[in-house]
Write a protein that binds this DNA or RNA. Structure first.
Lengths: 355, 355
DNA sequence: CTGAAAGCGCTTACAG
DNA sequence: CTGAAAGCGCTTACAG
């Protein structure tokens, strides 16, 4: 089907509104365009009476600001950017971003800011995307998620002079504010919980160690074992995908002395691990305890329901958005430390069986 | 941490580039601004030699078009919009959008188009969002997903004169091209598969019937039973959430004569159903067969792996984006019918047990 | 407190 | 084929 060159309705709409600009507001109010602009933007230098009159005229005429014209004048886009570089599989099975974005939007929308989203296949494209976002003036600032070791985006964004906020603290120096949810306590709590139940052979299915949060969860795991006085545990590194989580679980469970508990770096892998345990005839939690990370919706509804660490991506999104707006407004913003994610104990963990 | 007023790097960058506009290109090439614009946009009316010279000068000077200036002149934004109105839980557990968006981006990026994303809590906000997207000139066209019965967006967008493409065919008249993946064959195939296995008491955990795809899957289910010569099956309506899928399953399985197979309207609910079956001690597939819809990544890795219907959201995204671009380019675009989703048989379906 | 003007960086008739 | 000018709709010094 086609769009008729002129839909009756839209034509009607358009002809009723011969574009009311500040020019016509000015004429109608008997002042200059400049004054109208001052009045509309609440800037000083307009007498109260004049201001009121101008505002009234603008309202009567149904004046709407032209974002495009304003953008050209102010050299700003009034939009923020999010570039996601994840392999589609991992992205699809991880509910982090939908929730994070919902949080971001809840702050941006009331401020009249839009979110420009890019999903790119690799890091090279990612950097290129930031460059073109800036070159085109598409955004005034960006969210930096999935922080990597020695992340190339930090210096790039600094060089481009683009305001940014990072999710978590980068490993190197950064001129940008960081909004952080500490991974460590949740992982520590998971291990402590398992240790308390009596587990001594605890393994970790880690995420990618090029990702800072993957790395930190892994370090927290190691530290927690030490703290609990347990022997070093096995760690299998993955790319955070469910496929990799499944494979890693198989490897761990088909050894001579398999672990009695596995700490997964995210929920999708834990759920895949649960499936693999079932497939191998290993009963959870009787013969194997499992913990996840994130507390995605599924956790409550798989069987047994998953013990996991509850992050709050929506809150994170809100906080990151507020911080970025503040940074752009005032030129500076403080780091924010959000409450650490906390352990939620459900049915997938129990004392180890006899042996 | 703050952004220093002038980062050394960014300052350096900026001072080296005193903004090369078509004005300076024109001066350098010894022609008028207008001619430069014509040459740059490959419009006729420029002699070959002049064109080449202008292009060369532009290149030497490192001229980059100003999207903002162009937008103001052409009254276009060179961006497309996607407004998602879903409750956060459902959004988060359904990998449709990440994949769909990845497909969309793969088409938009090379065309220099950006995607503006809005996630809104309800339908009222949704309509308001479309209005303000248009009022602000943020987008030149939009994707309409999650089509509803008698969808208010169709007339609104027509009235606003905003080009759009719908995912699936609306139930009423629409001036917009539709890119469709037919739900029916996949659901029919699921039921046929179960009937062939010998099931006679098949139930359906349907999605919301205010959503067209929820409704159509449900109708397909009913039609398929009839076609297979089976008695009418039970249908439980849900909101597509995992929580609702879990509840519905409990209701179905705790009856006197529970169904021996359940067809779910999406995978997340099917996975929740699998969990509930386990919880109730109902073995899958021995005592209960289960099918899903979408073929999300998890399906392969739960136990038993889920028989489901494989859609291709990424392809859908690509096709929708191409169609929308074509529509905006030429003023019209044909409907597209993508290959219907097909059944993927895995371990969650088997012949019904004795009784 | 107010006005007249230039500027943001393009595109597009209109003349020649 | 080419030039000079107006226009897109704002903002922002600069004078008064």
């Amino acid at each position: 089907m086609n769009i008729p060159a002129n839909l009756p309705a839209s034509t009607a709409m358009k002809s009723t509104s011969p574009k009311v600009t500040i020019e016509v507001v000015a004429r109608q109010a008997g002042v200059s365009k400049g004054l109208v602009s001052f009045a509309l933007n609440n800037r000083p230098g307009v007498s109260p009476e004049t201001r009121v009159r101008i505002l009234q005229v603008a309202k009567d005429l149904g004046w709407k600001p032209s974002l495009r014209a304003r953008s050209l004048s102010t050299q700003r886009s009034y939009a923020l950017g999010l570039v996601i570089a994840r392999n589609p599989d991992v992205l699809a099975s991880d509910p982090f971003f939908p929730s994070f974005i919902a949080g971001v939007e809840s702050i941006l929308a009331p401020e009249g800011r839009a979110l420009v989203l890019s999903v790119v296949p690799d890091e090279e494209t990612e950097l290129r995307t930031y460059r073109s976002l800036v070159a085109d003036g598409r955004v005034d600032g960006v969210f930096v998620t999935d922080l990597r070791l020695n992340d190339a985006r930090i210096p790039l964004l600094a060089e481009l002079g683009l305001p940014a906020v990072t999710l978590g603290r980068p490993d190197g120096p950064s001129p940008f504010p960081a909004v952080t949810v500490d991974d460590t306590p949740g992982v520590m709590a998971s291990v402590a919980h398992l240790a308390t139940l009596g587990h001594r052979r605890i393994a970790h299915v880690a995420g990618s160690s090029t990702l800072l949060h993957g790395l930190r969860r892994r370090e927290a795991f190691t530290a927690a074992l030490r703290e609990a006085g347990l022997p070093e545990g096995q760690t299998v590194e993955t790319d955070f995908s469910v496929a990799a989580g499944s494979d890693a679980t198989r490897r761990l469970l088909t050894q001579d002395r398999p672990p009695t508990a596995i700490v997964y770096a995210n929920d999708p892998m834990a759920i895949a691990g649960l499936g693999m345990a079932h497939e191998l005839g290993v009963r959870v939690p009787d013969e194997l305890s499992i913990t996840g990370y994130d507390d995605i919706d599924f956790c409550r509804y798989v069987y047994p329901p998953l013990t996991t660490v509850s992050a709050a991506p929506m809150v994170w999104g809100r906080s990151a958005a507020s911080t970025l707006l503040a940074l752009m407004e005032s030129g500076s913003a403080d780091d924010v430390d959000l409450p650490a994610a906390r352990l939620v104990v459900r049915g997938s963990t129990a004392p180890p069986s006899g042996k």
